[in-house]
Design a protein around this nucleic acid. Structure first.
Length: 95
DNA sequence: GTTGAGCGTT
C-alpha cells in the first residue's frame, strides 16, 4: 500500500530531495516532490511524499506533523486527490 | 507563502 502525504508550510529552502531524505528516515520514500511555481521555479511552500509502507507513512506523519523545520511549523497529513491533468475541469466559458 | 498540471491559446 502506498500512502501519499501532504507537507505544508515548508520553507522555500526545502527541495524535493531534502523532503525525500526527511521522510526516508521513517521509511522508504517512493516519491517526493516539492511543488514549485511553474513560472518562477520557486517552491510554493508545500510538497508531497509517497511512501510504499503506509505504517511508515503514518508514523512519519504523526512524527513530523507540527514540528518546526527551519523556522516554520510544518503541516504533515495525508494528501487529497489531485485533479486530473489530462482532462481537468475546464473553466473556459464559466456559465 | 498551506493540497501538485498544463495550455502550445481554445
Amino acid at each position: 500500500m502506498a500512502t501519499r502525504i501532504y507537507v505544508g508550510n515548508l520553507p522555500y529552502t526545502i527541495g524535493n530531495e531534502q523532503l525525500a531524505q526527511l521522510f526516508s528516515a521513517y521509511g522508504d520514500v517512493a516519491e517526493a516532490s516539492v511543488v514549485m511555481d511553474r513560472d518562477s521555479g520557486q517552491s510554493k511552500g508545500f510538497g508531497f511524499v509517497e511512501m510504499n509502507d503506509d505504517a511508515a507513512a503514518s508514523n512519519a506523519i504523526a512524527t513530523l506533523n507540527g514540528t518546526a523545520l527551519d523556522n516554520r511549523t510544518i503541516r504533515v497529513s495525508q494528501a487529497q486527490p489531485r485533479a486530473e491533468r489530462s482532462n481537468g475541469p475546464r473553466r473556459s466559458r464559466d456559465y
